[in-house]
Design a protein around this nucleic acid. Structure first.
Lengths: 242, 242
DNA sequence: AAGTGGTCTAGACCACTGA
DNA sequence: CAGTGGTCTAGACCACTTG
């Protein structure tokens, strides 16, 4: 019996109305929603349109459907967080960068599964914030002569994922991030202007191809000076993420 | 001209075939996909079915559409990570828990925006892994007499988000997570069996209601003993996340 | 048996982009 | 202008759940 008032697509109106019922707590986790047919006649529309609204809510994790039974309000997933790796500074000019080719040490040999004596490209970066160095960043790529353009590309402010994608024929690789607290090595401490006795946040990033081989590795030391350098992550509904 | 071979819904077959073209690098970021009409006639089906396939790929962030132009392969978002807060141990019996009501110190007064002298509920937990304590967890809730069931509920192994949802009439709140590296306070160090001079990973979690008021606060000290206690996050396509 | 969601058809009209 | 994606209709058949 609902009369349309708002503007825009019908499916968005249904979506907003249903969402409002969840927001206010009128519908609680576990509760059942009206059936597709009920909603379709309420809004004088078809199942197809109603389904579009419901699938929007489903995509957001607010509801789930059960074939033969109906739609139900979900429990919110408050333990799944979304975290943005702060790499936008790649575009900024206030980062100091150094590139060289070095012999892989034991750790790098293990990570890339390469032989002793193999060489890797090392890219070091100082991340600055208001003239203060807040993070020290080292990235490694296995070195292979003849790979196209790597040496040249690397001299520009190319984001690391893009550099990695020069090495693999497809853009389909994934990334693992390991977060830990450690003392910084001497070089990181000197860049960050802190002591080797102060804890820093360490972010190790592994770029893995589809065969789970490591094709890129990065390590970042994030200064914890004065409460700076914290990493932020969010859970909950998208519109609530500042 | 495609002849159907596989089983299952048509839209999944189209989805799989298109995805394969992305996986192999046959279609690269920026490339245009066949139009909905083209695909519909290729698979002898309708636009509706084809759209379902394409919207699946769009939801995964693999492609995007541009009204009036077509569908295009997206750049993968390698700087957006998904992180699972390790709270499943709430269900496990090998965690030691202590609950008490304390006077809020300055920090808690600030976080909850409450007056000096106000009281908060404190829930301490030792997270163990194979008999070894790997994390020390403290959670706080503002204390208000008369709130239903809190004291009783709290004695069971109720996940913290569920406890918080007893305080707010709706299940719609969000969570902010702050990650940093610090020295542990004395009580945390003694529980973790480490020195106060060893860095630990600190996870501060704020439960915020829709008015951005803090309705729950948790702090976890994660031991870094022997490389243990690292946090893992992933980016890339869902099926690649182990 | 009646109701539910899952899949699918064969159309339609619209606003938009590009030649 | 023809082609694209965005929205929508009015049906259909299926497998499943529930009484």
């Amino acid at each position: 019996m609902n009369m349309r008032q708002q503007t825009g697509p019908v499916y968005l109106e249904i979506y907003r109305n249903l969402k409002q019922e969840l927001r206010t707590g009128e519908k609680k986790p576990g509760d059942e929603l009206p059936s597709e047919n009920t909603l379709a006649s309420q809004y004088s529309t078809t199942r197809t349109t109603v389904r579009k609204s419901l699938q929007l809510l489903e995509k957001e994790g607010l509801i789930h459907s059960w074939a033969g039974k109906g739609y139900f309000v979900s429990e919110p997933a408050h333990n799944r967080f979304s975290l943005d790796f702060p790499e936008d500074e790649n575009q900024r000019p206030d980062t100091y960068k150094r590139i060289r080719v070095i012999k892989a040490d034991g750790e790098l040999q293990r990570i890339f599964n390469i032989l002793p004596g193999s060489r890797v490209i090392e890219i070091c970066r100082n991340i600055e914030d208001n003239g203060q160095c807040t993070a020290y960043d080292v990235k490694y790529l296995p070195y292979t002569r003849g790979k196209p353009m790597i040496e040249q590309e690397i001299n520009y402010f190319v984001p690391f994922p893009d550099i990695v994608s020069l090495l693999v024929p497809t853009f389909l690789f994934y990334t693992r991030l390991e977060l830990s607290a450690q003392f910084p090595p001497a070089d990181a401490a000197s860049v960050l202007g802190c002591s080797v006795d102060e804890p820093v946040l360490v972010l190790c990033r592994y770029f893995m191809d589809q065969n789970d081989r490591c094709i890129g590795y990065g390590r970042r030391y994030q200064s914890q000076h004065g409460g700076k350098g914290k990493l932020l992550a969010f859970s909950g509904y998208p519109e609530r993420r500042p």
